[in-house]
Design a binder for these strands. Structure first.
Length: 203
DNA sequence: GGAAAGATTTTCT
DNA sequence: GAAAATCTTTCCT
């Protein structure tokens, strides 16, 4: 995996991530997933992006060079992760929404079953927060260089994906959710089910 | 300094 | 289909 491959415009890079492999190693063991669903966020031009209103302590990683991991905490209980892409200092990133566990299935199953028992293997990493749980990635994953030698979390070329990616609206956003910047591998069972966003009521 | 909503998941009716 | 769980960040007074 070359870093230059991630340095292009986010809308070009995002679909290329499909089929690539993300491998995470901790003292518990190793889990790897083949990415089946991603979502693009285009920094300052994108009202749905965390970087839309400028750099903060939380999103600082997005403003750095491509190939780093941006992990954020949301809904009081979940982590989600992004791969920073684009040229240096352009705060674009790709949300990793789902994947197929191809290595360390037993460990992934163990982690997921700690909160919810009796999950089927297809659901192990089917959704952005589930993906983080399966890989054992939390706050400490923020800012990790995915392309560094011996990195505990690494992005690998994998088998790639030769077909035409499916595209559709993004999920869970209040702003600009309609932009067709979500990409997934057609007919893959590990792609998360689409749920239209419902804004929470204001008191 | 406080309120509101959130790039979600799970469970219950 | 609705609602809860739970805490960080952002936005407004």
């Amino acid at each position: 995996m070359r870093r230059s491959l991630l340095a292009g415009p986010v809308l070009e890079v995002a679909p290329r991530l499909l089929g690539m492999v993300l491998r995470s190693t901790t003292d518990e063991g190793t889990v790897a997933v083949r990415l089946t669903e991603v979502e693009a966020y285009d920094g300052p031009n994108d009202p749905g992006s965390h970087a839309y209103r400028g750099q903060t302590a939380r999103n600082a990683v997005m403003f750095g060079p491509p190939g780093f991991l941006y992990v954020y905490f949301t809904y009081g209980m979940h982590f989600c992760m992004n791969v920073v892409v684009g040229p240096d200092s352009t705060p674009s990133a790709v949300l990793l929404r789902a994947g197929e566990v191809i290595e360390g299935v037993e460990l992934a199953r163990l982690r997921r079953n700690q909160s919810v028992p009796m999950k089927t293997d297809r659901d192990l990493a089917r959704g952005p927060a589930r993906l983080c749980v399966a890989l054992g990635i939390g706050r400490e994953g923020n800012g990790v260089d995915l392309l560094a030698k011996n990195s505990p979390i690494a992005l690998l070329d994998g088998v790639g994906f030769d077909g035409v990616p499916a595209t559709g609206p993004r999920v869970g956003l209040r702003e600009a959710a309609d932009r067709p910047w979500r990409f997934w591998i057609p007919n893959d069972p590990t792609v998360s089910p689409y749920r239209p966003h419902v804004p929470k009521k204001r008191a």
